[in-house]
Structures are given as structure tokens and as C-alpha cells.
């Protein structure tokens, strides 16, 4: 009996955890619900290293979700809300950092490296092909003599 009560208590305790992440926000319509979902997925929780605001259980994430909901209700655009959070928590909260001088390498570095690699390969292939195409001129007398000498040496060994 006491065991069953114990089990129930454990289940009840676990249930608390399950409910913890669920908050009740009211939305005007489905579009607004969708907007909220997208925004909270787009923004990173400052406390947790790699969780979005939608997913995080941290108290700060709950605060920020509430704040986002408030700003949405106040008629702010997505850009304004993101700016608002970046002004307070820094670029870190954005999963997709803004394209600017500082983040240029981050955005275009990989593509640039790939391009540089492709150009190098193209260059090498082309040059090799050129070498094999142009190099069938007959050997000069000097070269022929050297070849004979080398072959001779090889035969003897």
C-alpha cells in the first residue's frame, strides 16, 4: 500500500515538471499564435547555451516569452521585438546574426572557401590537361641521348 502511495507521489512530482513549461498565452488568432511560435524559435535563451526561447525551461526564458507576448500585443513588429532583445541581451540571442561587417566571414566564409577550392581544382585540372596535350612534340637530339643513357643504365642494373 505504502509502495503504491510512493509511486503516486513520484508520478505527481513528475507531473509538476511536465506542466512547468506550459504557459497560457491568449492570442487574437492563429496567425498571431504562429508568429509567437516562430519568434520564440528564432531567439536563443541567454541563460542556456543552445536552446531557443520556445524550448527552454529557464526562468529567464519564461520572462522573455512573456515579454515577447506583451510586445506583440502592443503591436510591435518581429524586427522591433528582435531589436528590443538584442539591445538588452546582445547578438547572442539571435540564432541568425545580422549580416554586417563583423559577421561577414561567418556568413560568407564557408561559401568563399568552397569557391576558392573549386577555382584551385579547376585551375589544376586545366593546366594538367594542357601539359598533356601540348607535350607531344618529338624529343630533341639532346633529350634522345639522355633517354638512351638512362635506359642503358636501367638495363645494366
Amino acid at each position: 500500500m505504502s509502495r503504491r502511495i510512493g509511486m503516486l507521489l513520484i508520478l505527481w512530482a513528475l507531473m509538476g515538471n511536465v506542466w512547468a513549461a506550459i504557459e497560457t498565452f491568449s492570442y487574437q488568432d492563429d496567425a498571431e499564435r504562429e508568429r509567437f511560435k516562430n519568434l520564440t524559435r528564432e531567439l536563443r535563451c541567454p541563460k542556456c547555451q543552445n536552446q531557443d526561447l520556445a524550448d527552454s525551461n529557464a526562468p529567464i526564458a519564461a520572462d522573455l516569452r512573456r515579454e515577447i507576448h506583451r510586445l506583440m500585443a502592443a503591436g510591435q513588429s518581429d524586427e522591433q521585438i528582435i531589436e528590443y532583445l538584442v539591445a538588452r541581451y546582445g547578438e547572442f540571442v539571435r540564432y541568425r546574426p545580422a549580416v554586417e561587417g563583423r559577421t561577414f566571414i561567418l556568413w560568407y566564409g564557408p561559401a568563399g572557401l568552397l569557391l576558392a577550392g573549386a577555382i584551385t581544382v579547376l585551375f589544376m585540372v586545366r593546366r594538367r590537361r594542357q601539359v598533356s596535350l601540348t607535350d607531344n612534340t618529338p624529343l630533341s637530339a639532346e633529350e634522345r641521348a639522355r633517354l638512351a643513357h638512362l635506359l642503358d643504365k636501367k638495363d645494366r642494373s
Binding site: P46, K47, I60, D63, L64, E67, R88, Y89, G90
Partner: peptide
């Protein structure tokens, strides 16, 4: 926590 929010406090 309103001032904390404006200060970017996360912990």
C-alpha cells in the same frame, strides 16, 4: 524583473 530585463540580466 523589469529593470533586470532592461539590463539584460540572465542570472
Amino acid at each position: 524583473g523589469s529593470l533586470g530585463l532592461d539590463l539584460g540580466v540572465y542570472g
